[in-house]
Design a protein around this nucleic acid. Structure first.
Length: 536
RNA sequence: GGGGCGUUAGCUCAGUUGGUUAGAGCAGAGGACUCAUAAUCCUUUUGUCCUGGGUUCAAGUCCCAGACGCCCUACCA
């Protein structure tokens, strides 16, 4: 495929497979999938990376507790996450990367070497108040003395002891000003703005060097021996974030910076992440890359968390939703639509059964599904099952067509900011207008009085449906495909799943074309059913 | 403690650089229509725009104070 449009590289965070995936994981990969499909349909050669982050002490300990090797646990749980992508959420990733992949070790080692060459890594001791129970260090001001004079972590009230551990450090402090300059020059690097502001303020508050290796466990990428031989006899593994973030480079061929894939796709267009890891992506990651003299990603999109009826999902409350359960109950496309339509992507969202059903019934079954059904039924019954030949267009015809016509550009602008919510809101507004148009024109009356006019109204309505169906493909690949089938749009592409979607009558390049009168249109069957409550 | 964000109709939220009777969707009420998935269309009720001050010819929109809620304040991911 040749395309004049720039390639597009999108990543999700890689998830820590230390448990079952929940709806929050699905939210992130679904949104990224929608973004990737949109770009593919719009003719951009797209590479979509997702996967699992498998190193670290927790994995090692969980494996021990389960009596498995760490590798066995990683294999098992990574497969669960991949299965969610493949079998539950319909994710069109180009590669499912695992930080235990061989090429990832090579990439992590290479970026480490570059940072050493830049003079940004040195050996020292990490010292602080360590809580064995919490498995983490606290700074002095995060601790307090209890009545017995024992020092406790303020947050968890667990005892802490002064501990020193040898570690390699990254000169993060050196990058404080370069980062601030970069943020100033790239105001849309982090989004939404409120989250990005938190990051900026954090950097303004001063950066300390970062301990980036560990010696207390070995489940990680080893720091190259030739680099440590002169300095220490201890075995160091990379602090998980060095290796985790590097996955974005591994995915496109690093350290082979001359490779076609690296040249084409790096720097990444957008890293999609949750708000809990914004610091790692907006501060550590750009600093590592500056040090390694690698171009910085263009954008970090920070999405919010999903709450169950306003309450945080947690195992102890027992309100954690498994993606597979939702998909089984509402259907995949309804779930995907709900997640993107209901909340602005950068904000937290609260879901309820009623809210999901409301979207499914009101937006999908009633506004879209029923409009398709009523108009296509009339065509089947009254137009010899063919796209009717439109006559002269009235102001009303031109108005609704113009509104539909604008949707592509509006969607492009919204998607470029991961503002899925806005694109869908506007699209469904136009569907509302289309329903009103249909009711005002009363084609069922025209059937008896003015067939030519009826034909025009039905054509216009079908044409609006075609445009909406094209744009709905990234969000609801299955249903939108059915709708395009019902409109007998020549099959082509795969609803954004692969780059094959970038051309042809189902790609966005066909958006401004029109339905061809005379094309056969069979009697329609409903595509978006209303929700049926379980009766058990 | 320090910093930030939010508080607008029953619910979820829009409200641009301050400017005429504060909006949308959903829910509710009434009506219409029958092409359609009891769907669609039209009309319609409700707002001390958190509170109290202030600036201004004019404030949901700016300033000050307060109440309530949420978030950030580095090495578990």
């Amino acid at each position: 495929m040749t395309s004049s449009k720039p390639p597009f590289y999108i990543t999700t965070a890689i998830h820590y497979p230390n448990g079952e995936p929940h709806i929050g994981h699905a939210y992130e990969v679904i949104a990224s999938d929608v973004m990737a499909r949109f770009k593919r349909l719009d003719g951009h050669e797209t590479y979509f990376l997702t996967g699992t982050d498998e190193h670290g002490q927790k994995m090692q300990q969980t494996a021990q507790n389960l009596g498995l090797s760490t590798r066995e646990l990683a294999d098992r749980n990574a497969a669960v996450f991949q299965a969610m992508d493949d079998e539950v959420a319909g994710i069109s990733y180009d590669r499912f990367i695992r930080t235990t992949d061989e090429d990832h070790y090579a990439a992590s080692t290479a970026i480490w070497r570059r940072m050493v060459e830049a003079g940004d890594i040195y050996l020292d001791k990490y010292a602080g108040w360590y809580s064995v129970r919490d498995e983490r260090f606290y700074s002095e001001d995060e601790t307090e003395l209890d009545s017995a004079g024992e020092r406790l972590a303020s947050e968890t009230q667990t005892p802490v002891t002064w501990t020193e551990e040898e570690s390699y450090f990254f000169r993060l402090s050196k990058y404080q000003q370069p980062l601030l300059d970069f943020f100033r020059d790239n105001p849309s690097f982090g989004a939404p703005r409120s989250r990005f502001n938190e990051v900026i303020r954090f950097v303004e508050g001063g950066l300390e060097d970062l301990a980036i290796s560990r010696t207390t466990f070995d489940w990680g990428v080893p720091v190259p021996k030739d680099l440590t031989a002169d300095q220490t006899s201890l075995d160091h593994v990379m602090y998980v974030w060095v290796d985790a973030l590097t996955n974005y480079l591994t995915g496109v061929g690093f350290p082979d910076t001359e490779s076609e894939s690296f040249a084409k796709f790096w720097p990444a267009d957008v890293h999609v992440i949750g708000k809990d890891i914004s610091r790692f992506h907006c501060i550590f990651w750009p600093a590592f890359l500056m040090s390694a003299q690698i171009e910085l990603p263009k954008r970090v999109m920070i999405h919010g968390f999903l709450n169950n009826a306003g309450e945080k999902m947690s195992k102890s409350v027992g309100n954690v939703v498994a993606p597979a359960d939702w998909v089984a109950e509402y259907g995949l496309d309804a779930v995907r639509f709900f997640l993107l339509r209901e909340f602005p992507f950068g904000a937290d969202g609260s879901y309820t059964h009623e809210a999901v059903v409301g979207r499914k019934n009101s937006d999908l079954a009633n506004n879209l599904g029923n409009l398709a059904q009523r108009s296509l039924s009339m065509i089947a019954k009254n137009c010899e099952e063919k796209v009717p030949q439109p006559g002269e267009r009235t102001a009303a015809d031109r108005r609704i067509l113009a509104q539909a016509d604008e949707l592509l550009e509006i969607s492009r602008e919204a998607y470029d900011q991961q503002d899925f919510h806005r694109a869908l809101e506007r699209t469904w507004f136009v569907l509302g207008e289309a329903n009103a148009y249909f009711a005002e024109q009363e084609p069922w009356k025209l059937k008896k009085t003015d067939l030519s006019r009826m034909n025009t109204v039905l054509f216009v309505t079908a044409e609006v449906l075609r445009k909406v169906a094209l744009l709905a493909q990234p969000v609801m690949p299955e249903s939108a495909t059915q709708l395009l089938d019902a409109l007998n749009i020549e099959a082509g592409g795969d609803a954004g799943r692969t780059n094959a979607s970038g051309t042809g009558p189902r790609s966005f390049e066909a958006f401004h074309a029109e339905l061809v009168p005379g094309t056969l249109l069979a009697k329609p069957t409903p595509i978006f059913p209303r929700h049926e409550e379980k009766t058990d």
